[in-house]
Simulated assay, not measured.
Amino acid sequence: MKIGINARTFSVDEPGGAVQAAMMQAKELSARNDTEVVLFGHKSIRDDFPELTVVSDNYISRSQAFGILWERTSLPKLASSQEVDVLYCPNGNAPLTSISVPTVVCIHDVNAIKRMSSNIHYIYRRLTIPSSVNSAEVVTTVSEFSKKEITSELSIDEGNISVVHNGISDYYLNDGPGKPLDLPDEYILYVGSMNPRKNIQGILDSFNILKDSMEEYKLVMIGPENKSIFKNFEVKDSDNIVTPGYVSIEELKFAYKNAAVFLYPSKYEGFGLPPIEAMACGTPVIASRTASLPEVLDDAPMYVDPKDPRDIAETTQTVLENPKLSSQLVERGFIQASKYTWENSASRLMDVFHTL
């Protein structure tokens, strides 16, 4: 099967979780012996995909505004000229009207439509997502939770939505130590964007409660800087809080493996890759019992109320002070993380493509 992928988002400098997931799906699809993958995007992505055909006709600027214009005007014609069997749009960026090529669009979640991003991002997604969804033959999403959200917010028949779980890189599952990163000796770790829906304020408030009784622990927060599409929020370094910024996968693995506990009390997730990655690296996880996280993480973490900083702090302290409990969480985490591979994700996606 010849698969075209809208790779417009792949050229961003610091890809977030949804874009990283899309890139991993592209690589896994191309590794199969029953596919030919063509990427439609800026020529700069050839460095990340040297063995794949990258079609970048008319893509003259890496700016986001131009990329959006390009995918609305040039992409449909390019997909047709390349004679692909299906056009996969992994970041909610399908053509706004039906085209000659069968289209599958992935909607990770509807956080922007629920006003969890900036006003301009809300307006853009509110204007484009319904049309993209209606023009596609099939919609995919990453969890049963997101499927219900999409059905509710966009009034789509759930029979036209297929769940394709994300996976994690095999790199996290192997025994390697990762690449050393300058971090405190003892620390609590958060990984993700500095987006208020990730409950950054709740993390900070709970750490302020915790640090008086467990002053040997620092808080490490890893992730890209706050982008304009998110509501304004900044976290600055202090004596007790370390923010390395965006790091390589090798450095991230090191951070996961050496953390005392991984803290992820997010308010809203469509899937939630970081806690699964932390589990794969043998780190006990604390997560919020909300949105997709109970579905994706099952019984592997300790759960907290994301609205209650004291609950987050007390649960974190319980894990840190109880080696037996910590070991049990690590064991359950390994089992849960092993369920999510990009090979499985690509296989499920191929099942969807074959229905067209």
Rank of each mutant, 00 (worst) to 15 (best):
M1Q: 03
M1H: 01
A7T: 02
V12D: 05
E14I: 10
G17K: 01
M24H: 14
K27F: 08
A31R: 13
D34R: 09
E36Y: 13
V37F: 04
K43F: 06
K43H: 08
I45P: 01
D47Q: 12
L52P: 10
L52Y: 08
V55T: 09
S56I: 00
I60C: 10
S61W: 08
S63C: 07
S63T: 05
Q64M: 12
F66K: 13
L69C: 15
W70R: 01
L75Y: 01
A79V: 09
A79E: 02
S81W: 08
D85M: 05
L87T: 07
P90K: 05
N93A: 12
P95Y: 00
L96M: 05
I99S: 01
P102V: 02
V105C: 02
C106V: 11
I107T: 04
D109H: 03
A112L: 06
K114W: 14
M116P: 10
S117M: 15
S118C: 08
N119Y: 15
I123A: 15
Y124C: 15
R125H: 15
T128I: 09
I129D: 11
V133M: 06
V133L: 06
A136M: 13
A136F: 07
V138D: 07
V138P: 15
E144V: 10
S162D: 03
V163D: 01
V164K: 03
H165C: 10
L173F: 14
D175A: 13
P177E: 06
G178I: 08
L181E: 04
L181T: 09
D185Q: 05
Y187P: 14
V191H: 02
G192T: 00
R197W: 00
K198W: 00
K198Q: 02
I200P: 00
I200C: 01
Q201H: 10
I203H: 01
S206M: 05
F207T: 02
E216L: 13
V220W: 05
K231T: 10
F233G: 06
V235M: 00
D237C: 14
N240Y: 03
S248C: 01
I249H: 06
E251M: 04
K253P: 05
A255R: 03
Y256W: 02
A260M: 02
F262C: 06
L263F: 08
Y264E: 00
P265V: 05
S266K: 01
K267Y: 05
K267V: 14
G270V: 11
G272I: 07
L273S: 13
G282V: 06
G282L: 01
P284M: 09
V285W: 00
V285F: 00
S288A: 03
T290G: 12
P294I: 09
D298S: 15
P301K: 06
P301N: 02
Y303M: 10
D305F: 03
D311A: 01
T316L: 04
T318S: 12
V319N: 09
E321R: 10
P323D: 02
K324M: 14
S327G: 11
V330T: 13
G333E: 04
Q336N: 09
S338M: 09
N344I: 08
R348A: 11
R348S: 11
M350G: 11
